[in-house]
Simulated assay, not measured.
Amino acid sequence: MATAVATAIDASELLATRRSPLPDALVSPGPDAVESARLFEIALRVPDHGRLAPWRLIRIAGESKARWVERLMAIVENRDDAAKTRVSTRKLASAPLAVVVVSKAVSGHKVPEWEQWLSAGAVCMNLVNGAHALGYGAQWLTGWHAYDHDATALLGLADGEKVAGVILIGTVAEPAAPRPRVSVDDAVTDLAL
């Protein structure tokens, strides 16, 4: 029993200390093959009402990642907000690993689509927490590239699929500065019936 208590304390400390570093602060090295396999195993341990697996993951690393960012930059040049989107697109470049979590909710199923989307969000959060548990940092982004048709076409999204998050993962070169968090008193209320 002492081991279970120690593990619970370690896990609670891990969750309480997670921060999202700036995307530019995520650098090489990233997770190796064994760590990546473990990370994906962690990511998929989410609530999944109906066992639909209403999500899929796209791993983008190495030369493919460099080409993906290059192609996104080319798309940016045709946008009205090119200056702004150029800056946000560059943020994708430094992390050695990007994982795109794609929501593929099954429409018309007895499990509401909302619950399926939440399951995809849980995959994103498990990736972020899993990276932290393995000693890496992670940043959950969306941004223009998650909604732009030409950008999502690079990912091969099917009709009805949506980007739930782009999770950047790497070694933290510079820890995130502490930021104010919502207090428990402000976020939690008790139901009094």
Score class of each variant (00 low, 15 high):
9 I>S: 09
132 H>R: 10
98 A>S: 05
73 M>S: 15
108 G>S: 06
134 L>Y: 05
120 A>M: 00
45 R>K: 11
23 P>T: 04
76 V>A: 11
112 P>Y: 01
70 E>H: 13
107 S>R: 11
83 A>D: 13
117 W>D: 13
152 T>I: 13
81 D>E: 15
18 R>P: 08
83 A>T: 04
104 K>E: 15
45 R>C: 06
17 T>Y: 06
35 E>T: 15
60 I>D: 02
24 D>Q: 06
29 P>S: 03
135 G>S: 06
58 I>R: 11
157 L>V: 09
43 A>F: 06
21 P>M: 11
131 A>V: 03
85 T>L: 14
20 S>D: 08
57 L>M: 14
103 S>F: 05
89 T>H: 02
51 R>V: 14
138 A>Y: 01
30 G>M: 06
108 G>N: 04
16 A>W: 07
87 V>L: 07
88 S>K: 03
77 E>G: 13
26 L>M: 03
65 K>R: 15
122 A>P: 00
65 K>I: 14
49 H>T: 08
121 G>P: 00
144 W>A: 13
15 L>Q: 12
126 N>W: 00
125 M>P: 07
75 I>H: 09
40 F>K: 14
150 D>N: 09
157 L>I: 08
155 L>M: 08
144 W>N: 11
13 E>I: 12
83 A>K: 04
155 L>Q: 03
100 V>R: 02
149 H>R: 14
121 G>C: 01
107 S>A: 15
44 L>V: 11
